[in-house]
């Protein structure tokens, strides 16, 4: 399968599957009378697929806010409980959930957490938006996994065998990397450029035509979360840090130490949630 063919295939991607335990948890919540849109949002914002679907919907021409809404909490205010409920009830799941799916879920969640913390440290105006960019930065990998499972498997296996980065193998085998794939889909779904560019350029943040600061933060967070060994990003290598991107962030030693401490604490909290998800997997298996 080659680049152009993949680009064509992407045009037809309307929706992506996600982890069964998350969807069943949300379905349970929806039937509870006391649940609010905000409570549902707290789960949705942990899942990159549901978050992108929510953003796709609110930025669609039907709702009428094209390329404007970039965070789950804002989307929820505009969509309301009934629409979110429909989104949950109609969401699709992976028929067979693999360990690597949970790994990627954790990696994305970890990256979102790190990106949010860095954004706060740097005093960026909307840290939640940066966190969202972190959450969905590997959307392209979900596309490969769901739409081209054979190619995805080949890429993951080759990366492991040859000890290469996933994106290098993707370029070689498919002529297109997951960053670009995610970027194409995000643009097609009318997501704001503030999200599209960081997705597309998280491996080469300095090429980002705009919002280079956000792209740099996502690039950095991706690396930090891999280095900490939280989740699984598709290959087990920690990519090199782009020096120019780092010069945009440039946390001092003390700040960096603080960041790692805060991150550690947050990741511990997240672990409870991800263990829950894995537990559900075992039960349903």
């Amino acid at each position: 399968m080659k680049r152009e063919e993949i680009r064509q295939r992407l045009k037809e991607v309307q929706s992506l599957p996600t982890l069964p335990p998350i969807v069943s948890k949300l379905n349970q919540m929806v039937s509870d009378e006391d649940v609010t849109a905000v409570k549902l949002g707290r789960i949705i914002e942990k899942d990159q697929v549901l978050t992108s679907k929510l953003l796709k919907m609110v930025n669609s021409s039907f709702f009428g806010f094209p390329q404007r809404i970039s965070t789950v909490s804002n989307a929820i205010v505009l969509l309301g409980f009934n629409v979110i409920k429909t989104l949950i009830v109609t969401s699709s799941i992976f028929e067979v959930m693999q360990a690597s799916d949970i790994g990627l879920f954790e990696h994305s969640l970890g990256c979102a957490t790190a990106a949010g913390l860095v954004a706060k440290k740097l005093g960026i105006k909307n840290p939640e938006e940066v966190s969202t960019a972190g959450l969905i930065h590997d959307l392209g990998k979900i596309v490969l996994r769901a739409e081209m499972p054979q190619e995805y498997e080949l890429v993951v296996e080759t990366a492991a065998k040859r000890q290469q980065y996933m994106r290098e193998v993707e370029q070689e085998a498919l002529g297109i990397g997951h960053g670009e794939i995610g970027g194409i889909l995000a643009r097609q779904w009318n997501l704001p450029e503030r999200l599209v560019y960081p997705i597309e350029y998280h491996h080469r943040p300095e090429a980002s035509p705009d919002y280079a600061d956000v792209s740099a933060i996502i690039h950095f967070s991706d690396i930090v979360i891999r280095a900490l060994g939280f989740g699984f990003g598709g290959d087990k290598w920690v990519p090199p840090l782009d020096h120019q991107a780092w010069s945009r962030i440039k946390l001092g030693k003390t700040q960096m130490r603080q960041l790692l401490e805060e991150l550690d604490e947050k990741l511990m909290e997240l672990q409870d949630f991800t263990l829950d998800i894995q537990q559900d997997k075992k039960e349903s298996a």
């Binding site: 849109a37 709702f63 009428g64 404007r68 205010v77 309301g80 409980f81």
Partner: peptide, 18 residues
């Protein structure tokens, strides 16, 4: 301007519905 009007209407609908 229409976007802002739509935004206000969505906020009202959702808050009042809830």
């Amino acid at each position: 301007g229409d976007e802002v009007i739509r935004m206000v209407s969505r906020i009202l609908v959702n808050v009042i519905q809830e």
